[in-house]
């Protein structure tokens, strides 16, 4: 059944490459720091898929063990990244990575977006409210079947 295993390996490797590539594209293009982080995690997932596939092909548990370590390191990374992103957010008030380029050459002007996207108008909806205990909440119809925001 060598054919079967080879085909399995091929398919999984291509899926891993796809995950890796998509994560790469996301890391390169998205300016939200959290999305960048998610993209980086996605690249790790792509690598994990490949490792597991190779481990199965060679009947070697080390592939899976390496993935376990990847998960552990990713957890550490997540903890630190979250703390850092939180700090950065507290300082500048948003998550734009492009605001953080203080280490540029001193003679370069700060980065400025020359064109900003249209942001669709804000559709204000009612915020959720809590009804005091003991009373049956009277929810408006709009609230029960549609929410414009999470």
């Amino acid at each position: 059944m060598i054919e079967h295993e080879l085909n399995l390996l091929t398919n999984f490797l291509v899926v891993g490459a796809l995950l890796f590539g998509i994560g790469l594209i996301g890391f390169l293009t998205r300016r939200n720091m959290i999305i960048m982080f998610l993209s980086a995690e996605m690249m790790l997932q792509g690598v994990s898929v490949s490792l597991v596939a190779w481990g199965r092909y060679f009947n070697d548990l080390d592939g899976q063990i390496l993935v376990i370590f990847i998960i552990a390191v990713a957890a550490c990374e997540a903890a630190l990244a979250l703390a850092l992103i939180l700090m950065l957010f507290q300082r500048r008030g948003n998550l734009d990575i492009a605001l953080w380029h203080d280490l540029r050459e001193s003679n370069l002007p700060p980065y400025v977006d020359h064109e900003l996207p249209e942001i669709p108008p804000y559709q204000s909806g009612p915020w959720p409210t809590l009804t005091p205990a003991g009373r049956r909440p009277d929810l408006p119809q709009q609230e029960t079947d549609y929410r414009s925001h999470v």
Binding site: F27, W100, H101, N107
Partner: peptide, 10 residues
Amino acid sequence: LRSLQSGMVQ
């Protein structure tokens, strides 16, 4: 080449 050092991570 200095102008390449924009400080932008991406």
